[in-house]
């Protein structure tokens, strides 16, 4: 399969995703509004009870990381729907570039998350959150967030194929909540019971949240006493790269052997 076909077929698959946006504006808006709602809810409903400094400055970058991690679910839903309807079977029976199905999926999901991140950053600014570092550091922060999303995306593609059916995704939807909360997104791991705090510190999502706070020059609570929190930016690169190294080949292999 020539490289030209991989490019053109991936573009066709991306256009398909864009056409979905046009056909389902409500779903797109709900998808964008959900993390915004979460952020507003935590900032105003729970934030009042937090006494440490400006909670919003701490929370907003955590919510960015959380939104990226939750993207896993969206990828799984879309992929299992295609598998269930037999659309993937049709693609596989056609003389198109097989890789384009997964590449297209990853491009459109990344685009959607980038858009979601933009909306979330806008909401954060409205709520009074600011970045205090330079523009290069801010761009690096956005890059790290999208890198986390990209890693979650390939985990989602692989897990979607393992789950196979949309109903199975619900199990993952429930499991992702404790993983998301067992992090530094909402509060410092220092305030958690010892072992829980350690898990929260080592959570890949925490590394990204911590690194993004450093790059935006937002408050970084706690830390300083553990290696992971001292090397947040490094770990925000290492974790997604490790996840990609595991899930990308697994996903490709699984796709090639669907049904076997």
């Amino acid at each position: 399969m020539s490289a030209a076909y991989i490019l053109s077929d991936s573009w066709t698959m991306t256009r398909r995703g864009l056409a979905h946006w046009g056909r389902q504006p409500v779903a797109v808006i709900v998808g964008l509004a959900f993390p915004v709602m979460m952020m507003v809810m935590f900032a105003y409903l729970l934030g009042g009870g937090m006494e440490v400094g400006d909670y919003r400055e701490y929370l907003v970058p955590g919510m960015f990381a959380l939104a990226m991690a939750f993207g896993l679910e969206a990828t799984m839903v879309e992929l299992t729907r295609d598998l269930d309807k037999g659309v993937i079977d049709r693609f596989r029976s056609m003389p198109m570039a097989p890789s384009a199905v997964l590449i297209g999926r990853s491009i459109i999901d990344l685009l959607q998350s980038a858009l979601g991140l933009l909306v979330l950053i806008g909401t954060g600014l409205v709520m009074g959150w600011r970045w205090h570092g330079g523009p290069a550091a801010a761009l690096a922060a956005v890059g790290l967030l999208l890198l986390l999303r990209f890693a979650m995306l390939w985990a989602g593609i692989y897990l979607g194929m393992v789950a196979g059916r949309p109903e199975m995704v619900q199990a993952v939807q429930i499991l992702i909540w404790p993983v998301a909360f067992l992090s530094n997104a909402f509060t410092s791991p220092d305030t958690m019971p010892g072992w829980m705090g350690t898990i929260a510190e080592w959570n890949p999502m925490s590394a990204t949240a911590q690194a993004v706070r450093e790059l935006f020059a937002n408050p970084v609570w706690g830390g300083g006493d553990s290696w992971v929190t001292d090397h947040a930016v490094l770990m925000a690169v290492v974790w997604p790269v490790v996840m990609l190294a595991v899930f990308l080949p697994l996903a490709v292999r699984r796709y090639q052997r669907l049904g076997d």
Binding site: R16, A19, H20, R23, D84, K85, G86, V87, D89, R90
Partner: peptide, 16 residues
């Protein structure tokens, strides 16, 4: 390149 497949479900994109 030489076949067409009609599977057990209508394999079309519902949203398009």
């Amino acid at each position: 390149r030489r076949i067409g497949l009609l599977g057990q479900h209508a394999a079309v994109d519902e949203h398009l």
